[in-house]
Design a protein around this nucleic acid. Structure first.
Length: 416
RNA sequence: GUGGGUAUAGUUCAGUUGGUUAGAGCGCCAGAUUGUGGCUCUGGAGGUCGUGGGUUCGAGUCCCACUAUCCACCCCA
């Protein structure tokens, strides 16, 4: 029973839908090439420690959503829950930082999180992601945001809601953390056990605790953006100026707190209200400490992740049709033993010349073959019976118009 | 981790206060003058009513559990 069911939160992409994925992937590659981003493919699983250092120990992802197991040699392995840490690891491992900078990468990859399933939320989903290593400039942030923007536009999505925020850097975050802790201190005893832990390790996360009491306490808490240092403030202003210049409209949302610990300074997200639960389609930001955190040289970086399943839902809800350009298809209908054999030969030869050809492999009647040809959307049907065979001719029927004419078998290719 | 809905043919769904052989549309297959698709008509195949218990003379229908699935909270893409 269970073996005929894909695991919870996973989905098959069926032949009738594959063209949508191929179209999206094609657009990804196209737009990325315009921006000079090149593709990288990293493994499906990584050492658990990389993921741990990458997304951070205090995140939901690390604490309850990882697919982690021991391999046969006792190594702890985790299916990647996001694409940034693996890309950063590959950047380091392959010394890409030693090449000319910046390094601009993109990827399309499955990611895995053990979550409760709902509309637009799966346990395995696919992300198109982009990582720009080596630049600390706000123009790099804008480059990445504008890439996402252009990508959406290329699919016909233009009324986008881009939210941005700046959550500070290691220099100024402590100021904010202190202010926040000072604020939280009064009600420390009321906090849930998890938040008591967060209070020391990463107080920012207390702000998005699900516990009702914690939420209540967090309501009047100070906002990060009021506490950031001059450098962060300038960075933020520079980003806004850059986006203004590009004509990309955005909203400053001081409450964006991304769910990954590695973010510094810029964070942003692109929201879609109409794909079931209101949700993020694209989320990203700057992470200037991650590379160093996982053992590399201090390297500024910025990137985003974009959920392809959610993107598909969004396109559907907006009524945007994805083009499905089918190839011209020929069906060879045959009647009689000799004609059947001849049909096989003709099909084989045409296929080797780059034409899409189908023929009967079900031993059906001519009528049934015609029906089949119609159902699979054949543009032309070549009909061969023993009568035709004797004369060296075949009938060719244009399925759209219903018109039929007789041609020489040797002329089939030129008649299509 | 929390809450709610649903579970009957391949699919979308009916199924009357529990009562005999569980139905329809679509799809699939086959026929409707001998070698021709779409439209129409006719026929056919296909269901241990999610699984396991219980109540009852009798359960697709009522009760419980489990599982699956959908939706939402939270969080995320």
């Amino acid at each position: 029973m269970l073996i005929t069911k894909a695991p919870k939160g996973t989905k098959d992409v069926l032949p009738k839908d594959v063209y949508k994925w191929q179209y999206i992937e094609q657009k990804v590659r196209e737009v990325c090439s315009y921006f000079g981003f090149t593709e990288i493919r990293t493994p499906t699983f990584e050492h658990t420690e990389l993921v741990q250092r990458g997304v951070g120990e205090t995140t939901d992802i690390f604490q309850k959503e990882m697919y982690t197991f021991l391999d046969k040699a006792g190594r702890s392995i985790t299916l990647k829950p996001e694409g940034t840490a693996p890309a950063a690891r590959a950047y380091l491992e392959n010394n890409l930082y030693a090449d000319v900078q910046p390094t601009k990468l993109f990827y399309i990859t499955p990611v895995f999180r053990y979550e409760n399933v709902q509309a637009g939320r799966l346990r395995e989903h696919h992300q198109f992601g982009v990582e720009l290593f080596g630049s600390k400039e706000a123009t790099a942030d804008a480059e990445v945001i504008s890439l996402a923007f252009t990508f959406f536009n290329s699919l016909g999505l233009d009324e986008l809601k881009v939210n941005i925020n700046n959550i500070g850097c290691p220099d100024c975050r402590p100021n904010y953390n202190n202010a926040l802790k000072e604020y939280l201190k009064a009600n420390f005893d009321e906090l849930c056990p998890v938040c008591k832990d967060r209070y020391e390790r990463n107080p920012l996360r207390v702000l998005d605790c699900k516990n009702d009491k914690c939420k209540k306490i967090a309501e009047g808490a100070p906002v990060v953006i009021d506490y950031i240092c001059d450098e962060c403030k300038n960075h933020f202003e520079e980003l806004k100026a850059e986006l203004d210049a590009l004509g990309i409209s955005y909203v400053v949302d001081p409450y964006i707190v991304r769910g990954l610990d590695y973010y510094t300074k810029t964070v942003f997200e692109i929201i879609s209200e109409d794909i079931g639960a209101k949700s993020t389609v694209c989320g990203g930001g700057r992470y200037d400490n991650l590379i160093e955190e996982i053992g590399g040289p201090k390297t500024p970086a910025v990137g985003f992740g974009l959920g392809i399943e959610r993107l598909l839902l969004m396109l559907e809800s907006k009524g945007i049709e994805i083009p499905n350009n089918k190839r011209k298809l020929v069906y060879i209908a045959s009647l009689g033993e000799r004609a059947k054999r001849e049909a096989s030969k003709i099909a084989f030869n045409l296929r080797r010349e780059g034409i899409s050809v189908e023929k009967d492999i079900m031993n059906r009647s001519l009528k049934a073959q015609m029906k089949y040809a119609n159902k699979i959307g054949a543009d032309y049907v070549i009909i061969i019976g023993d009568e035709e065979l004797d004369k060296g001719v075949a009938k060719i029927k244009d399925m759209a118009t219903g018109q039929e004419r007789e041609i020489l078998i040797t002329d089939i290719k030129s008649s299509l």
